[in-house]
Computed example of a mutant assay.
Amino acid sequence: MTTADIATLAPKHAPVRTYLERPSKPALRLPPGACDSHVHVFGPADRFPYAPDRPSTPIEAPKEALFALHRHLGISRCVIVQSVAHGMDNRVVADAIAAGGGRYLGVALVRTDIGNAELQALANSGFRGVRFNFMRHIAASADIAAVLALTPRLAQVGMHLQVHFESALVHELGPQLARSAVPVVIDHMGRVDAREGAAHHDYVALLRLLESPLFRVKVSGIDRIDAQLGAADGYDAGIALARDLVARFPERCLWGTDWPHPNHTHIPDDGVLVDALARIAPAPALLEQLLVRNPAEFYRFDA
Protein backbone atom coordinates (compact mmCIF):
# COMPACT_ATOMS: atom_id res chain seq x y z
CA MET A 1 0.00 0.00 0.00
CA THR A 2 1.65 3.22 -1.11
CA THR A 3 0.91 6.81 -0.23
CA ALA A 4 -0.38 7.30 -3.75
CA ASP A 5 -2.67 4.28 -3.45
CA ILE A 6 -4.32 5.58 -0.29
CA ALA A 7 -4.35 9.16 -1.47
CA THR A 8 -6.64 8.19 -4.33
CA LEU A 9 -9.25 7.26 -1.72
CA ALA A 10 -9.35 10.78 -0.29
CA PRO A 11 -11.93 13.28 -1.54
CA LYS A 12 -10.54 15.31 -4.43
CA HIS A 13 -10.99 18.61 -2.62
CA ALA A 14 -9.13 17.51 0.52
CA PRO A 15 -5.37 17.59 0.97
CA VAL A 16 -3.63 14.33 1.77
CA ARG A 17 -3.26 14.47 5.53
CA THR A 18 -0.94 12.52 7.81
CA TYR A 19 -3.22 9.55 8.36
CA LEU A 20 -3.39 9.02 4.60
CA GLU A 21 0.36 8.67 4.38
CA ARG A 22 1.88 5.25 4.26
CA PRO A 23 2.29 3.83 7.76
CA SER A 24 5.49 1.95 8.45
CA LYS A 25 5.54 -1.78 7.87
CA PRO A 26 5.45 -3.45 11.30
CA ALA A 27 8.35 -5.66 12.23
CA LEU A 28 5.99 -7.74 14.35
CA ARG A 29 4.27 -10.52 12.43
CA LEU A 30 0.74 -10.85 13.74
CA PRO A 31 -0.89 -14.25 14.29
CA PRO A 32 -3.49 -15.45 11.77
CA GLY A 33 -6.92 -14.10 12.63
CA ALA A 34 -5.57 -10.99 14.36
CA CYS A 35 -8.32 -8.47 15.07
CA ASP A 36 -8.26 -4.68 15.19
CA SER A 37 -11.12 -4.15 17.64
CA HIS A 38 -11.47 -0.38 17.39
CA VAL A 39 -11.53 1.70 14.22
CA HIS A 40 -13.87 4.20 12.56
CA VAL A 41 -14.91 4.91 8.98
CA PHE A 42 -15.88 8.33 7.61
CA GLY A 43 -17.78 8.86 4.39
CA PRO A 44 -17.75 9.25 1.51
CA ALA A 45 -20.09 12.07 2.44
CA ASP A 46 -22.03 11.93 -0.82
CA ARG A 47 -23.21 8.43 0.17
CA PHE A 48 -23.08 8.70 3.94
CA PRO A 49 -23.74 12.28 5.06
CA TYR A 50 -22.26 13.58 8.28
CA ALA A 51 -24.59 14.38 11.17
CA PRO A 52 -25.74 18.02 11.15
CA ASP A 53 -24.88 18.40 14.87
CA ARG A 54 -21.43 16.74 14.62
CA PRO A 55 -18.78 18.33 16.84
CA SER A 56 -16.26 18.38 13.97
CA THR A 57 -15.92 17.25 10.36
CA PRO A 58 -13.25 14.63 9.74
CA ILE A 59 -11.42 14.05 6.50
CA GLU A 60 -13.04 11.15 4.71
CA ALA A 61 -11.67 7.73 5.65
CA PRO A 62 -13.80 5.22 3.73
CA LYS A 63 -13.87 1.47 4.07
CA GLU A 64 -11.52 0.97 1.12
CA ALA A 65 -8.75 2.86 2.95
CA LEU A 66 -9.40 0.79 6.07
CA PHE A 67 -9.24 -2.50 4.18
CA ALA A 68 -5.97 -1.42 2.54
CA LEU A 69 -4.49 -0.47 5.90
CA HIS A 70 -5.32 -3.87 7.36
CA ARG A 71 -3.75 -5.68 4.44
CA HIS A 72 -0.61 -3.63 5.01
CA LEU A 73 -0.52 -4.36 8.75
CA GLY A 74 -1.38 -8.06 8.54
CA ILE A 75 -4.78 -7.73 10.25
CA SER A 76 -7.60 -9.98 9.09
CA ARG A 77 -10.53 -9.11 11.39
CA CYS A 78 -11.95 -5.85 12.67
CA VAL A 79 -14.66 -4.17 14.72
CA ILE A 80 -15.77 -0.79 13.37
CA VAL A 81 -17.17 1.67 15.90
CA GLN A 82 -19.75 4.18 14.71
CA SER A 83 -18.56 7.76 15.14
CA VAL A 84 -20.42 10.82 16.36
CA ALA A 85 -19.45 12.42 13.03
CA HIS A 86 -22.13 10.24 11.43
CA GLY A 87 -24.37 10.33 14.48
CA MET A 88 -26.95 7.60 14.85
CA ASP A 89 -27.18 6.87 11.16
CA ASN A 90 -25.20 3.64 11.26
CA ARG A 91 -25.34 2.96 7.51
CA VAL A 92 -21.68 3.82 6.93
CA VAL A 93 -20.58 1.05 9.30
CA ALA A 94 -23.24 -1.37 8.04
CA ASP A 95 -21.92 -0.84 4.51
CA ALA A 96 -18.37 -1.66 5.59
CA ILE A 97 -19.55 -4.75 7.47
CA ALA A 98 -21.39 -5.99 4.38
CA ALA A 99 -18.27 -5.49 2.26
CA GLY A 100 -16.02 -7.22 4.77
CA GLY A 101 -16.95 -10.79 3.97
CA GLY A 102 -17.64 -11.78 7.58
CA ARG A 103 -14.32 -10.38 8.80
CA TYR A 104 -15.71 -7.00 9.86
CA LEU A 105 -18.30 -6.40 12.59
CA GLY A 106 -19.61 -3.23 14.21
CA VAL A 107 -20.60 -1.25 17.29
CA ALA A 108 -23.48 1.18 16.80
CA LEU A 109 -24.54 4.52 18.21
CA VAL A 110 -28.21 4.49 19.20
CA ARG A 111 -30.79 6.37 21.22
CA THR A 112 -31.57 4.84 24.59
CA ASP A 113 -35.21 4.61 23.50
CA ILE A 114 -34.42 2.75 20.26
CA GLY A 115 -37.19 0.39 19.20
CA ASN A 116 -36.77 -3.36 19.53
CA ALA A 117 -37.18 -3.93 15.80
CA GLU A 118 -34.43 -1.43 14.96
CA LEU A 119 -32.15 -2.95 17.57
CA GLN A 120 -32.74 -6.43 16.16
CA ALA A 121 -32.05 -5.17 12.63
CA LEU A 122 -28.68 -3.83 13.76
CA ALA A 123 -27.84 -7.13 15.40
CA ASN A 124 -28.83 -9.03 12.27
CA SER A 125 -26.54 -6.87 10.12
CA GLY A 126 -23.40 -7.54 12.18
CA PHE A 127 -23.48 -5.05 15.03
CA ARG A 128 -22.34 -6.67 18.25
CA GLY A 129 -22.76 -3.78 20.65
CA VAL A 130 -23.78 -0.16 21.19
CA ARG A 131 -21.57 2.66 22.41
CA PHE A 132 -22.28 5.63 24.64
CA ASN A 133 -19.95 8.59 25.16
CA PHE A 134 -19.31 10.36 28.43
CA MET A 135 -16.76 12.75 26.94
CA ARG A 136 -17.47 16.48 27.14
CA HIS A 137 -15.31 17.35 24.11
CA ILE A 138 -17.14 14.89 21.85
CA ALA A 139 -20.82 15.06 22.68
CA ALA A 140 -23.31 15.54 25.45
CA SER A 141 -23.09 12.70 27.92
CA ALA A 142 -25.67 9.98 27.83
CA ASP A 143 -28.00 9.53 30.79
CA ILE A 144 -26.55 6.57 32.68
CA ALA A 145 -29.91 5.49 34.10
CA ALA A 146 -31.39 5.34 30.59
CA VAL A 147 -28.34 3.46 29.31
CA LEU A 148 -28.67 0.85 32.05
CA ALA A 149 -32.40 0.53 31.36
CA LEU A 150 -31.52 -0.36 27.76
CA THR A 151 -29.17 -3.22 28.69
CA PRO A 152 -31.83 -5.93 29.24
CA ARG A 153 -32.99 -5.29 25.68
CA LEU A 154 -29.38 -5.48 24.48
CA ALA A 155 -29.17 -8.89 26.13
CA GLN A 156 -32.18 -10.07 24.15
CA VAL A 157 -30.40 -9.42 20.84
CA GLY A 158 -26.92 -10.54 21.91
CA MET A 159 -25.30 -7.10 22.14
CA HIS A 160 -22.88 -5.67 24.68
CA LEU A 161 -22.45 -2.15 26.04
CA GLN A 162 -19.38 -0.06 25.14
CA VAL A 163 -18.53 3.11 27.05
CA HIS A 164 -16.07 5.94 26.46
CA PHE A 165 -15.57 8.15 29.47
CA GLU A 166 -13.20 10.70 30.95
CA SER A 167 -10.92 9.06 33.48
CA ALA A 168 -12.26 10.91 36.52
CA LEU A 169 -15.74 9.52 35.82
CA VAL A 170 -14.62 5.96 36.56
CA HIS A 171 -15.43 6.50 40.24
CA GLU A 172 -18.99 7.67 39.53
CA LEU A 173 -19.85 5.51 36.53
CA GLY A 174 -18.11 2.31 37.58
CA PRO A 175 -20.53 1.23 40.34
CA GLN A 176 -23.48 2.05 38.10
CA LEU A 177 -22.09 0.17 35.09
CA ALA A 178 -21.67 -2.86 37.34
CA ARG A 179 -25.47 -3.15 37.23
CA SER A 180 -25.50 -3.66 33.46
CA ALA A 181 -27.38 -6.70 32.18
CA VAL A 182 -24.73 -7.24 29.49
CA PRO A 183 -20.93 -7.17 29.35
CA VAL A 184 -19.37 -3.70 29.41
CA VAL A 185 -16.36 -2.75 27.26
CA ILE A 186 -14.33 0.24 28.47
CA ASP A 187 -12.63 2.20 25.70
CA HIS A 188 -8.98 3.26 25.61
CA MET A 189 -8.00 2.06 29.10
CA GLY A 190 -10.51 4.43 30.69
CA ARG A 191 -8.61 7.44 29.27
CA VAL A 192 -6.35 7.49 32.34
CA ASP A 193 -3.27 9.71 32.35
CA ALA A 194 -0.51 7.18 31.80
CA ARG A 195 2.15 9.55 33.16
CA GLU A 196 0.56 9.18 36.59
CA GLY A 197 1.43 5.49 36.58
CA ALA A 198 -0.32 2.43 37.96
CA ALA A 199 -0.75 3.93 41.44
CA HIS A 200 -3.05 6.77 40.31
CA HIS A 201 -6.50 6.56 41.85
CA ASP A 202 -8.29 6.58 38.47
CA TYR A 203 -6.26 3.61 37.25
CA VAL A 204 -6.71 1.78 40.56
CA ALA A 205 -10.49 2.24 40.22
CA LEU A 206 -10.30 0.83 36.69
CA LEU A 207 -8.47 -2.23 38.02
CA ARG A 208 -11.17 -2.73 40.64
CA LEU A 209 -13.84 -2.67 37.95
CA LEU A 210 -11.99 -5.24 35.89
CA GLU A 211 -11.97 -7.67 38.79
CA SER A 212 -15.59 -8.30 37.80
CA PRO A 213 -16.02 -10.66 34.82
CA LEU A 214 -18.71 -8.29 33.53
CA PHE A 215 -16.07 -5.87 32.25
CA ARG A 216 -13.67 -5.84 29.29
CA VAL A 217 -11.12 -3.15 28.45
CA LYS A 218 -9.58 -2.02 25.19
CA VAL A 219 -5.82 -1.59 25.49
CA SER A 220 -6.04 0.83 22.60
CA GLY A 221 -4.96 4.44 22.81
CA ILE A 222 -1.40 4.16 24.11
CA ASP A 223 -0.93 7.30 22.00
CA ARG A 224 -3.88 9.05 23.68
CA ILE A 225 -3.38 8.30 27.38
CA ASP A 226 0.30 9.29 27.36
CA ALA A 227 0.23 13.05 27.84
CA GLN A 228 3.61 13.29 26.11
CA LEU A 229 1.78 12.61 22.87
CA GLY A 230 4.06 12.07 19.92
CA ALA A 231 7.14 12.04 22.12
CA ALA A 232 10.23 10.18 21.04
CA ASP A 233 9.86 7.70 23.89
CA GLY A 234 7.41 5.71 21.73
CA TYR A 235 4.48 6.00 24.16
CA ASP A 236 6.35 4.21 26.95
CA ALA A 237 3.89 5.30 29.65
CA GLY A 238 0.87 4.13 27.66
CA ILE A 239 2.55 0.83 26.81
CA ALA A 240 3.37 0.21 30.48
CA LEU A 241 -0.29 0.45 31.52
CA ALA A 242 -1.46 -1.64 28.58
CA ARG A 243 1.09 -4.32 29.46
CA ASP A 244 -0.07 -4.25 33.08
CA LEU A 245 -3.71 -4.71 32.07
CA VAL A 246 -2.92 -7.60 29.74
CA ALA A 247 -0.83 -9.29 32.43
CA ARG A 248 -3.57 -8.90 35.06
CA PHE A 249 -6.61 -9.63 32.88
CA PRO A 250 -5.40 -11.56 29.81
CA GLU A 251 -8.82 -13.02 29.05
CA ARG A 252 -10.66 -9.67 29.11
CA CYS A 253 -8.47 -7.34 27.09
CA LEU A 254 -9.05 -6.29 23.49
CA TRP A 255 -6.79 -4.21 21.24
CA GLY A 256 -7.35 -1.72 18.43
CA THR A 257 -5.54 0.93 16.40
CA ASP A 258 -8.30 3.58 16.70
CA TRP A 259 -7.69 4.42 13.02
CA PRO A 260 -8.00 7.07 11.61
CA HIS A 261 -7.37 8.65 15.02
CA PRO A 262 -10.07 11.35 15.18
CA ASN A 263 -10.13 14.17 17.77
CA HIS A 264 -6.43 13.72 18.43
CA THR A 265 -3.40 15.94 18.92
CA HIS A 266 -1.42 14.01 16.31
CA ILE A 267 -1.77 11.05 13.97
CA PRO A 268 0.32 8.11 15.16
CA ASP A 269 2.03 5.67 12.83
CA ASP A 270 -0.15 2.55 12.82
CA GLY A 271 2.90 0.41 12.15
CA VAL A 272 4.43 1.71 15.38
CA LEU A 273 1.20 0.90 17.25
CA VAL A 274 1.34 -2.67 15.94
CA ASP A 275 4.99 -3.06 16.92
CA ALA A 276 4.14 -1.86 20.44
CA LEU A 277 2.22 -5.12 20.85
CA ALA A 278 5.55 -6.91 21.25
CA ARG A 279 5.90 -5.07 24.56
CA ILE A 280 2.22 -5.09 25.55
CA ALA A 281 1.83 -8.86 25.09
CA PRO A 282 5.42 -10.15 25.00
CA ALA A 283 4.67 -13.90 24.97
CA PRO A 284 3.30 -15.50 21.78
CA ALA A 285 0.43 -17.15 23.68
CA LEU A 286 -0.49 -13.82 25.27
CA LEU A 287 -0.42 -12.06 21.91
CA GLU A 288 -2.62 -14.75 20.38
CA GLN A 289 -5.12 -14.43 23.22
CA LEU A 290 -5.25 -10.63 22.93
CA LEU A 291 -5.54 -10.44 19.14
CA VAL A 292 -7.27 -13.68 18.16
CA ARG A 293 -9.02 -15.65 20.91
CA ASN A 294 -10.50 -12.80 22.94
CA PRO A 295 -12.10 -10.93 20.02
CA ALA A 296 -13.17 -14.16 18.27
CA GLU A 297 -15.05 -15.30 21.37
CA PHE A 298 -16.38 -11.94 22.51
CA TYR A 299 -17.52 -10.60 19.13
CA ARG A 300 -18.54 -14.04 17.77
CA PHE A 301 -16.86 -13.74 14.40
CA ASP A 302 -17.83 -17.28 13.45
CA ALA A 303 -21.46 -16.91 14.47
Rank of each mutant, 00 (worst) to 15 (best):
P295K: 13
A4V: 06
A61M: 03
A240I: 12
L30E: 04
A140I: 10
V39S: 08
A139V: 05
L287G: 00
L273H: 14
I280S: 08
E64A: 13
P58R: 04
R131I: 06
I280E: 07
L154V: 05
G101W: 04
H201I: 08
S56N: 03
I59M: 12
L207E: 15
F215Y: 14
L229N: 08
R179V: 07
P62V: 00
E60F: 01
A51L: 04
A168Y: 09
V147Q: 06
A68I: 05
F132P: 02
L173P: 01
Y235M: 11
C253M: 11
P26F: 07
G87Q: 09
R224H: 15
D53Y: 10
P268N: 02
P58F: 02
V182W: 06
A231C: 09
A240G: 12
G106A: 04
Y19P: 07
G221T: 05
S56D: 05
M88F: 03
D258G: 06
I75G: 03
H160I: 04
R17W: 06
H188Y: 02
P23Y: 02
R216K: 13
F249K: 13
V192K: 12
L30Y: 07
R300W: 10
F42G: 01
D187F: 07
H171T: 11
F301L: 02
G43Q: 00
A232I: 11
G256E: 04
V272M: 13
I97A: 01
V292I: 13
Y299E: 00
K25S: 13
V39R: 05
L273M: 04
M88Q: 06
A99V: 02
E297P: 01
H86S: 00
R29E: 12
A142L: 02
V110A: 08
V219H: 14
V79T: 11
A145G: 06
